[in-house]
Design a protein around this nucleic acid. Structure first.
Length: 278
DNA sequence: CTGGGCTCCTGTCAGC
DNA sequence: TGCTGACAGGAGCCCA
């Protein structure tokens, strides 16, 4: 489900309601991708800070008062392929609810049927497994440093197909399978094009397309393909105006050529063979 | 360092 | 109706 727009929409739907809440308890279901990395009981009494997003991760700071003053750490959360968060006065957990953070303002619950998602404790000191996950991430697409010059520079020494570099997240974060396909469509670039062959001019177009695709999806509340919703339970609407994603065989909205589907790194890529050139 | 392939897990849907 | 295979919004890890 969750690419940058869905994660950001999720964050915005509960961040202001949970900030300042006190942790009352944790409930763990089946194992997620990685172990929590701390004693669940050690988080009780912590106060939730401002939730921030980095790439497709959410960082939930927890301030715990101890003998040595206020210690700051937090939980790094990732929704994986099928995760969704809910927040509020929630009922009994269902079969796929694998993490509950019970707070004085309500319960933050991760539902994740496939369990590719994760919740990992981090001391926030930059030396633990959670910090390592963040350290490999590329620029945020809305960072002013993410422009055509930066992108061109990064792509110059990459032989990999451009679609795979976008998915990799080490150049720019946030675009997953849907938005990587859509951004390449908007920029008129074939997803199979070797990154090193992208001109400066096309890098300009692509950097703009990535940013604008994600911004438009964000404004529409993300994409709901089967069951994505934010922490209020609201669905997204971007899927209704996708140019290529999920449209194999249908007419291109620009030129009417049938949209093609190919497989790259075991994942579907959708593109218009007419509008998107190598 | 780069790139390719595999892997984790469960649910849904198309086709026979 | 039931079985089987393909496919699904991610991304770390291992190996060449």
């Amino acid at each position: 489900m969750p690419e940058l727009p869905e994660v950001e929409v999720t964050r915005q739907s509960f961040a202001s309601r949970i900030v300042g809440a006190r942790v009352l308890g944790l409930r763990l279901g089946k194992p997620l991708r990685w172990p929590l990395g701390c004693e669940p009981g050690s988080l009780v009494g912590g106060v939730v800070g401002e939730v921030v997003r980095r790439g497709k991760y959410l960082w939930l700071p927890l301030h715990t008062a101890g003998q040595a003053g206020v210690a700051t750490g937090g939980l790094l959360m990732h929704l994986g392929m099928s995760g969704a968060l809910s927040f509020g006065a929630l009922g009994a957990p269902g079969a796929h609810d694998h993490f509950d953070l019970e707070t004085s303002a309500g319960t933050l619950r991760l539902k994740d049927p496939r369990r590719f998602g994760a919740v990992v404790w981090s001391s926030g000191l930059g030396v633990d497994p959670a910090a390592k996950l963040l350290s490999r991430l590329g620029l945020e697409p809305f960072d002013s440093a993410f422009d055509g010059a930066y992108l061109h520079q990064k792509l110059r020494r990459r032989r990999q197909a451009i679609k795979l570099v976008l998915l990799g997240g080490d150049v720019v974060v946030g675009a997953g399978n849907i938005y990587a396909c859509e951004a390449l469509f908007d920029a008129g670039i074939d997803p199979r094009l070797r990154s090193e062959r992208i001109s400066r001019r096309r890098a300009d177009l692509l950097s703009v397309a990535v940013r604008e695709t994600l911004a438009r999806a964000l404004a529409l509340g993300g994409s709901t393909l089967r069951d994505f919703h934010d922490a209020h339970g609201m669905a997204g609407a971007f899927q209704d105006e996708a140019g290529v994603y999920g449209r194999e065989g249908q007419a291109c909205r620009k030129c009417s050529t049938p949209i093609r589907r190919i497989v790259q790194a075991q994942r579907s890529s959708f593109f218009c063979p007419q509008c998107q050139q190598r």
